[in-house]
Amino acid sequence: MRNTADRIRQAVSFELLGIMIVTPLFAWIFDHSMGDMGVLVVLGATAATVWNYLFNLGFDHLLHWRRGDTRKTVPLQVVHAVLFEVTLLVLLLPVFAWWLSLSLATVVVMELSFAAFYMIYAFVFTWGYDTLFPPRQPDCEA
């Protein structure tokens, strides 16, 4: 198990490294300045973090109200993940389109590219982090 300090180091390093990789990469791919893309990447990461908290809070309250508990089955976890991503996309689309002076269709491609990048990045980062900082195994009692 990881302690709180390790979890914070992991989360902060994940975000900072992700921003350092995705900003120049997407500035180049989508032909925009590092400044414009940097603002969007930081805004997107911040919005995703805040929305994650609010969405999960609302989702859990809805589950508790409808079912009396907040446990999620696998199908409900899939619905939860898809709804989170779709609602985040809807929230960010107009801001990204306005900031970059792009059409909504172009920004949808950009957002889907961000999602694909971060899915692969999360896998690689987690593997690398676990290799560099292996999680401590819990003590087993006989």
Rank of each mutant, 00 (worst) to 15 (best):
D36N: 14
A122D: 05
F59M: 12
L63G: 03
L91S: 04
I19A: 07
L104K: 13
S103Q: 07
T106L: 07
L112F: 07
S101R: 10
L83Y: 05
Y121M: 02
N52D: 09
A97C: 07
R9H: 07
I19G: 02
I120N: 11
L92V: 05
V108H: 08
K72T: 13
L63H: 13
V41E: 02
M34P: 08
L89Q: 05
T4Q: 10
I29N: 06
F84T: 01
L83C: 13
K72L: 13
V109D: 12
G58D: 02
R9P: 02
L88K: 00
V39I: 15
N56G: 12
F59E: 02
L91F: 04
E111K: 10
D31A: 08
S103W: 08
T73H: 14
D60C: 03
A142D: 14
S101G: 10
V107M: 06
I120G: 04
V107K: 03
G18W: 05
R66L: 14
D130M: 02
I8W: 10
T126H: 10
V12N: 03
L25M: 08
D31R: 08
M1H: 10
D139P: 09
C140R: 15
E141K: 13
Y121N: 03
L54G: 13
D130C: 10
G128H: 08
H32C: 08
T106M: 09
T46Y: 15
S113E: 06
V95T: 09
F14V: 01
F123G: 10
L100W: 00
V124R: 13
V82D: 10
D130V: 13
D6G: 01
L92T: 06
P24F: 06
L132T: 08
R2S: 03
P135I: 12
